[in-house]
Nucleic acid binder design. Structure first.
Lengths: 233, 233
DNA sequence: GCTAGTGATCTGTGATCACAGTTCGGGTGA
DNA sequence: TCACCCGAACTGTGATCACAGATCACTAGC
């Protein structure tokens, strides 16, 4: 044989199906809040908008529906579900618990590389939030980047995947409000909590890091709930 | 109108698509270990076996693949993935963390109804495990029932859903071994850990309950890993 | 005897069609 | 003016077809 040694080092190139692409596109719409609770979705319209047939769309939607991010009503209507206040509270508590674990582990076992990435992400978010005219959509994205930079350092891929799903589920209701109302939230509490988390991670203080993220999540959730945009069913 | 008040109390009857049914059927196969790591799956064969067309099967498989319970190789082959020792360890640690939260909350806020259900499940598992000729498959099912009876009492639906997914992912590798090898595991450690957990939940001692479940998971995982059936890639 | 190649067969993916059920608009009736 | 009804258009679901690529058994060539 000629170059098996070199060939063996080739990375497994992952296959991208159309369904995957559509899934990502829809996820983006949901995570950024451009799809709000109650919004309807049509397979054929979405397919036409994306320039594909309905097949990839229905597979993507089926996955999203399995995650509870979309729902197909008994009437066969796809929409992003309304969340009751109770459900939102349960989701927030779950996030506090799960993300609390992740950040605690991250604080304990972060490498210098992890730390650098987290510092970068924190600085980026701070810069955007303190800018004269902050771009809301960008701030939301940077907030997400920061959180996931932290969770990446926890060293538990399954846990990261779980958190990604939780964010996807919470995305529409959180970002809808962030989009509709000024960044009173982002500028005030979030910056402080992020700073606390960063300091705790630097000091490898897992309890403090966990508490900071818990406060961040809880305050954001309380802000949303105080605005009362949730269904009381 | 005549009886709107009565009608309003009707429960929303959920629609069952063929895809959902297929998803459950495949989940069963995976959770019980009848589908082992490395086993291949063909859409058309599965469809024929289930008496449906390939459509529902591919939607179900697509969902399972999104959960990482199945994988479609670049060759377009569907199979239940092999798990590396590292991945299995990460999964076990994630389970310890997440299920630890659930059981701790369950210990704090369990009602008498919850407690009765947990006691029943514990007794059922014990009875099967201590039987003269225990039915392995049944013991596995009862073990699962007991764990989920506990998690049901945590009052956090999103968390329960997460745990269900984790069990689905761990199912094939765990139950393959449990199926292949005598219930040395079930009779020895599990019974003791379950008893500890039950006592702690009765006493509303969340730390002890969490520790008992953690030990249960860890010991089972170590048993699997000591048997060395995992890929080292 | 062993390797390389070749064609039948099977793989998942995507598109298209068929269908039952729902929604919604326009019109007719009182 | 309002309620009702009917039909066109649209909904997701399931089945079927088309296709590119992979697999596997087999054979021709060395």
């Amino acid at each position: 044989m000629n170059s098996t040694a070199a060939l063996a080092e080739l990375p497994q190139l992952e296959r991208r199906t159309l369904s995957d692409t559509v899934y990502e596109a829809l996820s983006d719409l949901l995570a950024s809040g451009r799809l709000a609770p109650g919004d309807r979705l049509s397979l054929r319209q979405s397919a036409a908008a994306l320039g594909v047939s309905v097949m990839p769309v229905r597979e993507a939607v089926s996955r999203l529906a399995a995650d509870g991010v979309l729902e197909v009503a008994p009437n066969r209507m796809i929409r992003v579900p309304f969340m009751s206040a109770a459900a939102f509270r349960a989701l927030a508590e779950t996030r506090i618990a799960v993300e609390g674990i992740a950040v605690a582990r991250a604080a304990e076992r972060r490498t210098e590389v992890d730390l650098a990435a987290i510092r970068r992400a924190e600085a980026a978010f701070r810069a955007e939030a303190e800018a004269a005219r902050p771009d809301r959509a960008r701030a939301v994205q940077l907030n997400r980047d920061l959180h996931f930079a932290i969770y990446d350092a926890c060293g538990l891929p399954p846990l990261q995947e779980i958190i990604a799903r939780l964010w996807l589920k919470a995305g529409p209701v959180i970002n809808l409000d962030l989009r509709a109302h000024p960044e009173r939230l982002l500028q005030g509490f979030a910056l402080r909590r992020h700073a606390e988390a960063l300091a705790a991670i630097e000091a490898q203080d897992s309890a403090a890091a966990s508490a900071a993220i818990a406060a961040d999540i809880r305050e954001a959730a309380e802000f949303i709930m105080s605005r009362g945009g949730l269904r009381d069913a």
